[in-house]
Design a protein around this nucleic acid. Sequence first.
DNA 1: CGACTCTCCTGGGTGC
DNA 2: TGCACCCAGGAGAGTC
Length: 281
Amino acid sequence: MPELPEVEVVRRGLAEWVTGREIASAEVLHPRAIRRHLPGAHEFAARLRGRLVKSAERRGKYLWLPLSGPEEALLAHLGMSGQLLVVDPAAPPEKHLRVRLRFADGGPDLRFVDQRTFGHVMLTRLAGGVPEPIAHIAPDPFEGSFDEVRFATALRAKKTEIKRALLDQSLISGVGNIYADEALWLARLHWARPTQTLTRPKIAELVAAVREVMGAALQQGGTSFDSLYVNVNGESGYFDRSLEVYGRRELPCSRCGTPIRREPFMNRSSYYCPKCQRRPR
DNA sequence: CGACTCTCCTGGGTGC
DNA sequence: TGCACCCAGGAGAGTC
């Protein structure tokens, strides 16, 4: 499940393998993959043809490729199963190939492959360097523009539980279900803790925990990254080795040995240590 | 308007 | 072996 660290690994791969190249054609193999590109597949392809990829950028879980010409970018969100692959143009189409870009230099394709089609790509205008559809998303905690004081103030004004707030991309972007659980464990906070009861020092501790778990994941994601295969999947690197609570129901907490608990949360799961992370009363 | 739920999707796993 | 069902998840749409 790609969250910020996995998307950053993809961004680095794209920066290396796609930057500076001219798009020769775009082929949409599944309309759902461009459902947020309202003008449709034909217009999508026509507007991409002949454009140069200038760079590869990211905010939270979104990434985008600014293009030559008008201030526009190819924007992508990987959803939960999306991959952006850099592959030999002669390679056979992947089973879940949704969008295929060919380049004028005859080099590797950029292919958007997505089994569950929660991800999407679109061509969109840039406003101040940020794609318009994600203008409402807050900076992620690795950006210089992330304002910790502003975040703490907004968090304390919310009437909700801390985990809901962590997943709210308008407060802080890039955190998904896995790293939310991991960061809450590290900061010793129960997922249901009301945001209004959090002190500013505790919020600072939580932000540090978010940076810690995602930074560690990024380092491990980077080590398993094959440069010619820009890949994202839930099995690589970090996922098997370093998770402390996520997916570890009944396994002992590494701090205190108490069995990790799983609870339903927003039609999915929250994992936590019932001793280290006391439930609010 | 804020807080919350619903919905989209596929395939691996499970139980009968 | 087949089949029904559950589960995973982000985020926009919809509800109250």
